[in-house]
């Protein structure tokens, strides 16, 4: 434990954020304004997610942070260290061992349980933003359920590319009411949002919190003749051989060699530990890293 208050934020701020979270859970998909605080990191590095995590964590929690699915990127490591230092909570890289998971742009491949909370970092919470620049107008559109514009965006996609080209931050309708930006997760993850765990979304710069309670209905918007498709690279993981996980494409050298690997590092590692080997992979060794 350090000289910081538990989890960095003062208790009053955490209460304010918890109230916003509870309101968000009560009105799934609705963007609740909150008084976002300055955090010791720049906007765009997950200040919203960090504040939500800070208000959610208890001393008994086990915390995991992923960035694009990986536990070992700068952003993930920094945030994990931040809470190790300010909250003294246990941390893990194992999805199933974590009780609170903060994520940037992915949902873990392992199915989450009812006792787990997923906290998303959100850059732009307003799904209508790029079509209607006025916040006054977009809030009115949400309140009056005027969502025709959202389909205009998908229409434009098909008109331009022959298919819905939106591949991340793919808009969803929650419980038949609010249209919500799922944060820039790949649309491959959209179907996973109907899950047992609680999902909380924090946008620090935009000062918005929204949430999905467990087992909430989340429908990806589409057209009857262009149905939603949760797509991924048509490939297997070159490390672990998984065919059901979301893949990153990695350029290996100047000769154009590349490989596809699971973006969820924990998922990949646990598969390799269990003996799975991909096309370019080597058998797992405990101290390989």
């Amino acid at each position: 434990m350090s000289d910081y208050n538990f989890a960095y934020l003062d208790e009053q701020t955490k209460r304010m954020i918890r109230r916003a979270i509870l309101k968000g859970l009560a009105i799934p998909g609705y963007q609740v304004p909150f008084a976002s605080r300055e955090m010791p990191m720049p906007y765009g590095w997950g200040t919203g997610g960090v504040q939500v995590s800070a208000a959610t964590l208890t001393p008994d929690d086990t915390f995991k942070v992923i960035d694009q699915g990986a536990d070992d990127t700068t952003n993930a490591v920094s945030i994990r260290k931040f809470f190790e230092k300010t909250a003294g909570v246990a941390t893990t890289e194992e999805t199933s061992a974590a009780s609170v998971i903060q994520t940037r742009h992915r949902i873990p491949e392992d199915e989450l349980r009812e006792d787990q909370i997923l906290v998303y970092q959100v850059p732009i919470p307003e799904p209508l933003r790029f079509l209607e620049p006025s916040e006054v107008e977009t809030r009115k559109m949400h309140s009056l359920e005027e969502y025709g514009l959202m389909h205009v965006k998908l229409y434009e996609d098909i008109a331009k590319h022959g298919a819905i080209a939106t591949s991340y931050a793919y808009p969803v309708k929650v419980e038949g009411r609010y249209v919500m930006d799922p944060s820039p997760i790949p649309k491959f993850d959209n179907p996973k949002m109907e899950m047992a765990g609680i999902q909380l979304f924090g946008a620090g710069r935009e000062q918005r919190i929204y949430a999905l309670p467990p087992y909430c209905q989340v429908v990806s918007l589409d057209f009857d003749d262009f149905p939603f498709e949760a797509s991924k690279a048509d490939h297997a993981c070159d490390m672990c051989g998984a065919t059901d996980s979301y893949l990153d494409e990695v350029i290996m050298d100047d000769a154009g060699n590349r490989m596809f690997v699971c973006s969820d590092t924990d998922y990949c590692a646990s598969r390799r530990k269990a003996g799975h080997v991909g096309a370019q992979g080597t058998p797992f060794e405990e101290d390989a890293a």
Binding site: E146, G148, L149, V152, Y155, D222, F223, D224, D225
Partner: peptide
Amino acid sequence: VGERLMAVGARHYG
């Protein structure tokens, strides 16, 4: 042109 149609519930691109 399509926006008003989509606003009143049209969901078939074609």
